[in-house]
Simulated scan of single mutants.
Amino acid sequence: MVIWVRLENMKCPSCPNEGTYTWMCAEDGNPTYVNELGVIECQGSAHTGPVINWRWNCGSSKHNGQFLPGDYESFGYAISQAVQLSGKAESQWLSSLILAIGKQYGR
């Protein structure tokens, strides 16, 4: 059984912005979640896909209004910090997620 963790208190994976955010789906405004298989989806499963295909926009001027991809290291760091702070997932879950996104990025 996969475990879904809400993307909250997470830094932007596509720019070095210092803030943390609760990420919402740009298409429908629903909360977004990630599982240990490296899949992100919005509440209701209307929009889903692998981490590598997801795009981010925290509102920083570095985005110039665009949704940008995150790289392996930035996403891994952002999600590990968010999960540790929230206490919503165990280290084994996080390890599985990091391995899954590593495969997506060819690592």
Rank of each mutant, 00 (worst) to 15 (best):
F67L: 04
A82I: 14
N9D: 14
W93D: 11
L37I: 07
I101G: 05
S96A: 15
W4M: 05
P69I: 07
A89R: 05
Y33A: 04
S74L: 02
G49C: 00
G49A: 05
Y21E: 07
S45M: 09
G87D: 07
S61F: 08
L7F: 07
C25A: 05
N30V: 07
R6V: 10
G29D: 06
G70D: 03
V5H: 02
L68V: 04
K88V: 11
S86Y: 07
F75E: 07
Q104E: 13
W23F: 10
S45D: 06
S80T: 15
I101E: 02
R55P: 06
D28H: 14
G38I: 00
K62T: 09
G102S: 04
L85G: 15
S91A: 15
H47K: 10
L85W: 11
G38C: 02
N64A: 04
S95Y: 13
Q84T: 14
L68I: 04
Y72T: 01
E18C: 10
G70M: 04
E27N: 15
V83I: 15
N30E: 12
T48C: 03
L94E: 07
P69A: 09
E73L: 12
G59M: 08
G102C: 03
Q66E: 10
W54K: 14
L68H: 00
A26R: 03
S91G: 13
A82N: 09
F67E: 01
V83D: 14
W56V: 08
T20C: 03
A78H: 01
A46G: 08
G38Q: 07
I40M: 02
S86A: 13
L7E: 06
G70A: 04
G76I: 01
W23C: 10
Q92G: 11
I79E: 02
L97I: 05
E73M: 08
G102N: 00
F75C: 05
P69W: 03
H63T: 00
E36K: 05
S80Y: 05
E41A: 02
S14R: 02
G65K: 00
E73R: 13
M10Q: 02
K103C: 11
